[in-house]
């Protein structure tokens, strides 16, 4: 074996080790969460965790349904607000605005992603919550407030990935469409967007991941009542907030129940990611 070949093998081995260590950290975290969280679920039954509506850990009542519903509602709300706004911004910045304007606006939007979530939460608490309370009623701390804040927080992700995938559509497509007599909007709607679809969906999935995992901002504006919200003006608690809110003093079974919350969050994220991946690859095949 020559020296170069030896070197090559060494590099390969080194890289393999590094890659493995990254993956093993992931594996260890997963194992740890399941190891800590599943025993209590077996003890009380999966059904009582998934479908129980009462969360009173001090009385051994560990129903997580309000938090599961809460997480899904808030994430869905964030997508309803964030996706149309993000997509519209991306279309404008790629197809309709001046190149120079885009060059200024895109970095500004990406800067939004750098603002810490606690700042979003604080602004939400100071301005959005009183606004909702005074104009729509309820305590202000609500599904609506959390969805609005999260919708804004996922904008940078949705916009920048949508811009990249719209830009990746070859100009010949647009030229062809316009040559056939289509207007600019028709071109965007019927040619560019379908061609960029899988990238746009990937951006939405990433945004969804951020929304469901976000904790700090949600704790500050959602009100955290462990109850299935009756309206979008009612307070709500998400799975992540449930863990962060109560971990300080939790011990024994209460602590295990918080790990169980983590297990369920883990499973929900896996399911959502799989659905999203399957739909996007299916679309690509078409």
């Amino acid at each position: 074996m020559t020296r170069l070949e030896k070197n090559d093998r060494l590099v390969r081995l080194g890289l393999l080790m590094i890659a493995l260590s990254a993956i093993s950290v992931l594996a260890i975290i997963t194992l740890f969460i399941f190891e800590q969280g599943t025993p209590i679920m077996f003890r009380y039954g999966f059904k009582s965790f998934l479908l129980g509506q009462d969360w009173y850990p001090s009385e051994k009542s560990f129903g997580l349904l309000p938090m599961i519903v809460g997480s899904l509602m808030v994430t869905f709300g964030a997508l309803i607000i964030g996706v149309p706004l993000g997509l519209a911004s991306a279309i404008f910045l790629t197809e309709f605005s001046h190149r120079r304007l885009t060059r200024i606006l895109k970095p500004v939007i990406e800067l939004l992603a750098g603002i810490p979530s606690v700042v979003y939460g604080f602004i939400g608490l100071m301005f959005l919550v009183p606004f909702i309370r005074d104009n729509f009623g309820g305590p202000g701390l609500s599904v609506l407030a959390a969805s609005l804040i999260l919708g804004i927080m996922i904008l940078p992700t949705v916009i920048s990935i949508a811009i990249d995938s719209i830009r990746a559509v070859p100009d010949s497509y647009r030229e062809g469409s316009i040559a056939l007599g289509a207007t600019r909007w028709q071109t965007v709607r019927m040619v560019v967007l379908p061609a960029a679809r899988s990238g746009i969906i990937a951006g939405i999935i990433l945004g969804m991941g951020r929304a469901i995992g976000e904790t700090m901002a949600v704790i500050m504006v959602a009100g955290n009542a462990a109850d299935i919200p009756g309206s979008i003006l009612a307070p709500v608690r998400t799975l992540t907030s449930n863990i962060a809110l109560e971990m300080a003093y939790a011990s024994e079974e209460h602590r295990e129940a918080l790990f169980a919350t983590g297990v369920i969050l883990f499973i929900i994220i896996m399911i959502l990611n799989t659905i999203a991946n399957v739909t996007s690859t299916r679309q690509r095949k078409k």
């Binding site: 009462d54 309000p66 704790i219 955290n224 009542a225 608690r237 809110l245």
Partner: peptide, 11 residues
């Protein structure tokens, strides 16, 4: 007795 579920919770 249990505190109402509808209560807002702060940490």
């Amino acid at each position: 007795s249990r505190i109402t579920k509808k209560a807002i919770v702060q940490d």
